[in-house]
């Protein structure tokens, strides 16, 4: 009886300690551990927010089997930078929203953050952001990739993104004719 009671208390204490912690530990598919501010994680990721609220956060590292260590490092890096960033002057001055589009231009640090990534890292990060329900990070990474496509010919796009052309010559000619005008503009 005594022992059981002691165990219960220990469990209680551990739970309290866990709740008090202001970071969560995330574990990548290849077993690396990363710590991230609980507040930032909950604010930036709907999936992590749900896990934190539902108590399914593991103190020894919450398994994120779908995300590799490099992508997870970038996710955590983004969360930490986001937590520390104060809205830039540019953002404040452009806060009058003239556009109906819900997208807000990336801030300077967000732009730099995605600019330094390799293609591989960028695509992995997009997937991680999508998986974790990180709306803003998804927005910023998708924006970056779309910027890489703008004004490019199909050939250039295939080259940049390493995509195989799976059309037959005839099919290609047909589509080109149908969309001829789109190739004269810009």
């Amino acid at each position: 009886m005594e022992v059981d009671k002691g165990k219960g208390e220990a469990e209680e204490t551990r739970k309290v300690a866990e709740a008090d912690r202001d970071t969560v530990t995330l574990k990548s598919s290849d077993g690396k551990l990363f710590e991230v501010s609980k507040e930032a994680a909950a604010r930036l990721s709907t999936v992590l927010a749900g896990m934190i609220a539902g108590g399914s956060i593991d103190d020894n590292g919450t398994d994120l089997k779908q995300i590799g260590s490099e992508a997870l490092e970038n996710v955590v890096d983004y969360c930490n930078k986001h937590a520390n960033s104060i809205p830039s002057a540019a953002l404040i001055s452009s806060s009058i929203s003239f556009n109906t589009a819900p997208f807000k231009e990336p801030e300077e640090w967000e732009r730099k953050f995605v600019d330094r990534l390799s293609h591989d890292a960028l695509f992995d990060l997009v997937e991680a952001a999508n998986f974790l329900g990180m709306e803003r990070l998804l927005d910023v990474t998708c924006h970056k990739i779309s910027e890489m496509m703008k004004g490019k010919s199909p050939d250039q796009i295939r080259e940049v993104f390493n995509i195989k052309n799976d059309y037959t010559k005839e099919e290609l000619e047909e589509i080109r004719q149908e969309l001829a005008w789109a190739f004269y503009d810009d």
Binding site: F103, V126, E127, N130, L138, C142, H143, I145, S146, M149, K150, G151, K152, S153, P154, I157, R158, I163, K164, N165, D166, Y167, L172, I175, R176, L179, A182, F183, D185, D186
Partner: peptide, 22 residues
């Protein structure tokens, strides 16, 4: 995710993307 990326492009770019692959 691909749709999310391509939906940000101007219309002419989207049409050109149709030629990239099936």
């Amino acid at each position: 995710v691909l749709a999310d990326i391509l939906a940000r492009l101007p219309s002419a770019s989207v049409l050109r993307c149709r030629v990239v692959c099936k």
